[in-house]
């Protein structure tokens, strides 16, 4: 029974989250144009167009990247370069670790299998695209309905609150709305700044010869990954490192590159990691406190526990929603404690 309802619940949760993100802007546009449907159309129109443009441009650029990489693979010296790379890594590592590096002929096999896996994953993704489009379409429809009817829905919900709890119920609903909305808008702002900072950082690395392509997309992916607290930043670096390796195979300079001329950093790997760490530090110490502030007000230990619970229960999506869900629980708990302590006032 539950698995049947899970997609519907997820659709509703996503629609509710999108509604919360856009609600203030729709209210603002309605206040100025006197038309709510116009506000909803404008906001969703701009958002959907931007997403389509991003995906379209991402796919075409990724296609170009794959094409260039395939060309590189077909060249005779690619296998030799890969062999050399394997040997060089083996030589530079202590004996114990060098046993872990596969033989040169196996490296090509591993690389081949890796690419086959990537293509298989893309095919599997395309296979599930049908259901993805259906879910996205339903989320869009629910979001439109919720955005247009939000205040009426809320009013209908309030009708079910007994007179005794009316005022406290209204306060709780308002506080939950504020909690989620503040958190989401803060996170989006923080993610945008991480994206911008990562793009700037990658451009700077390119100035030093890192040869990283798809910079803007990597930046946006890093920004989006940043929405998952604690683990997200590490996800953000992976595409940058992979692309730097893909583009620099066979480039002797990139292979022997060292960070600050001291730390060996083949293919600018440690440069990229350091750049992302700097971006994270700027985000954690300056941007997030400014835009997200104490919106949820959870102790870092509680954040980690909540993330683990979310991740164990639902996976990455659970981690994404764990903090706002904990924020909502915190508001509810606060009100429940208030009601229990002050039951004589109700």
């Amino acid at each position: 029974m539950l698995p049947f309802f899970t997609p519907i619940i997820s659709m509703l949760v996503f629609s509710f989250l999108f509604t919360t993100i856009f609600l203030h802007t729709v209210d603002y546009i309605e206040g100025h144009t006197k038309s709510r449907p116009l506000g909803v159309t404008l906001i969703l129109g701009v958002s959907i167009t931007s997403i389509i443009l991003f995906i379209n441009s991402f796919i075409s650029n990724l296609g170009l990247q794959i094409k260039a990489f395939t060309k590189k693979m077909q060249k005779d010296d690619f296998a030799i370069n890969l062999e050399n790379l394997s040997l060089q890594i083996k030589e530079s590592l202590p004996e114990f670790f060098s046993d872990l590096v596969p033989e040169s002929d196996k490296v090509i096999l591993i690389a081949k299998n890796f690419l086959i896996n990537i293509f298989q994953s893309i095919l599997a993704l395309l296979g599930s695209a049908g259901s993805f489009f259906f879910i996205s379409f339903m989320v869009l429809i629910f979001t439109i309905i919720l955005l247009i009817e939000y205040h009426d829905f809320k009013r209908s919900l309030v009708r079910f609150i007994p007179n005794k709890y009316l005022e406290i119920g209204l306060r709780t609903i308002y506080n939950i709305e504020q909690q989620i909305s503040k958190y989401l808008r803060g996170q989006i702002l923080a993610a945008s700044s991480v994206a911008v900072l990562s793009i700037i950082g990658l451009f700077i690395l390119n100035e030093f010869g890192a040869n990283i392509t798809l910079v803007i997309f990597i930046g946006i992916i890093a920004g989006l990954a940043n929405l998952i607290p604690m683990i997200g930043p590490f996800i953000g670096m992976i595409p940058a490192i992979l692309i730097a390796i893909m583009n620099n195979i066979g480039n002797e300079l990139a292979l022997t590159h060292s960070l600050f001329g001291i730390i060996p950093s083949p293919f600018y790997t440690f440069d990229i990691i350091l750049m992302f760490i700097i971006v994270q530090q700027i985000d954690n110490n300056f941007i997030t406190p400014l835009v997200v502030g104490e919106s949820v007000g959870l102790h870092p230990m509680a954040v980690m526990i909540v993330l683990l619970i979310g991740g164990t229960l639902i996976g990455p999506l659970g981690m994404l929603f764990a903090i706002p869900a904990a924020g909502v629980l915190k508001v509810l708990l606060k009100e429940i404690i208030f009601i229990t302590k002050n039951s004589h006032l109700l």
Partner: peptide, 24 residues
């Protein structure tokens, strides 16, 4: 009117009590 909440109260039912948090 679209934002207000219509409520029915029975005889001797409290609308609110003294010292309760006030919302409207």
């Amino acid at each position: 009117a679209h934002l207000t909440h219509e409520r029915n109260y029975k005889l001797n039912e409290y609308v609110f009590k003294k010292h309760a948090p006030a919302e409207g």
